[in-house]
Write a protein that binds this DNA or RNA. Sequence first.
DNA 1: CGTCGTCTTGACCAAAGTCAACGCACGTGG
DNA 2: CCACGTGCGTTGACTTTGGTCAAGACGACG
Lengths: 250, 250
Amino acid sequence: MTPQQASLPNPLVRKLESLGPLLEEERRAVEGVLLHQRPVPADQDLVCDGERPVHCLLLLEGMACRYKVIEGGRRQIISFHVAGDILDLTQLLVGRADHAVASLTPVRVAAIPHATILDWIGRLPNLTRLLWRDTLLDAAVFREWVVNVGRRSAAERIAHLLCELATRLRAAGLAGDDGSYALPLTQAELADATGLSVVHVSRTLQELRATGLVEFRGGTLAVRDWERLKRRGGFDPGYLHQLADAAAAA
Amino acid sequence: MTPQQASLPNPLVRKLESLGPLLEEERRAVEGVLLHQRPVPADQDLVCDGERPVHCLLLLEGMACRYKVIEGGRRQIISFHVAGDILDLTQLLVGRADHAVASLTPVRVAAIPHATILDWIGRLPNLTRLLWRDTLLDAAVFREWVVNVGRRSAAERIAHLLCELATRLRAAGLAGDDGSYALPLTQAELADATGLSVVHVSRTLQELRATGLVEFRGGTLAVRDWERLKRRGGFDPGYLHQLADAAAAA
DNA sequence: CGTCGTCTTGACCAAAGTCAACGCACGTGG
DNA sequence: CCACGTGCGTTGACTTTGGTCAAGACGACG
């Protein structure tokens, strides 16, 4: 899509290097992974719940999410992902997928065979550390989501989520020029991520818009007042760890 | 406390072996960790939010939890832990703690210096894989909690949480004789884990009691009808991965 | 015996969910 | 070029779930 992503700097390399230095040998190993890419249209399941995948997916372009569906058709989105994220490293060591992964936009993904990564664990301890760290950062986000959904009001949840997404998009080099970002989500997806109903999300977004904090329409997120938005959502980027620094530096 | 835990079988070894085979050298490395133990009374912070710990804590006995506190004194418990769990492996690779850890009962913990584990990553790939897997299982629980708190009703949340705890206690070898478990939690802690108010937890527990699903009083959890309890909470143990198998086998 | 922590109860309130209808933009096909 | 359908967002009226507040019960422990 956007030209700077199609160009060489592999988003996984970019991300791993934001976590720590990468040796030349490791960088080559990671680059090798790009051989098997494929494009996938929007709104497709990349991994189904209960599956036993034999490779991990690396997201090269576009956005994806993980989710679970429970009885009654209720759906909860567990996390959002941008270029550079590894989508199911989880299943590598753990066997069966305990959630589904879906594309939100058209995406490009690379498949990394589990065997490759298991081999890295034996040979490349530094890379192993970085990948492990990446999964730990993932977990840090899950924890914050538990808090978000468990203890915050509707407006706080949405404000917080938008703060997180803005920060992560910035860290991934996907910031707009002003305070705006391409955020291709529907209100229904926002609802499933925050544990609210679509109707209430609509109302709450209007409130945030009316009070001049943030505007979110037509797939574009425009942060109008970052400080007040952060305060509204009780957002403290600490849980994003070095990612937050990367975003600040950008 | 209970004699079988004070005896030799190190609960971490027990747990890691439930995740996969452990080499003799690795087992010795893990055993060595027990040298620096200390007891901690109930309701103490073992790790404070924002701290930069230089070692990980291994829980040898008792129960602990992780939690975050947000503005307004609202508190969300992120996870519960039993003997064998590593409490802050997270911070190993990630720097600053993004949550607090507290003892729920008197506990015994062992401190593992970060340096030790970093050394393992270079030398003991198999052990590395098991530890990594352990953190991934942790993350799987977080994901399920997001769903629990985001999309389930009060009764479902509590039923689901009690199912999870029963399963994990069983996997850790802490099951009672009949369908009963020592679960030293207050209703306030249950409330903080489920994102509900204490009053509502009280009412909901009464409902579960009245309908004969489960009884929870005075630190004892008595499952009266496992099948119906599972159904009530929409509990599918898949997300606990091999832990669920271990519990079934026990 | 008194105190503290925990649980319970009832009355009331507020946040968010549900349902149903409508508007609007976009794409398709006649 | 227009009619139609579809997906998404918005509105209003109403309901429900769970929160809040305040008082009391119960039990363990000093």
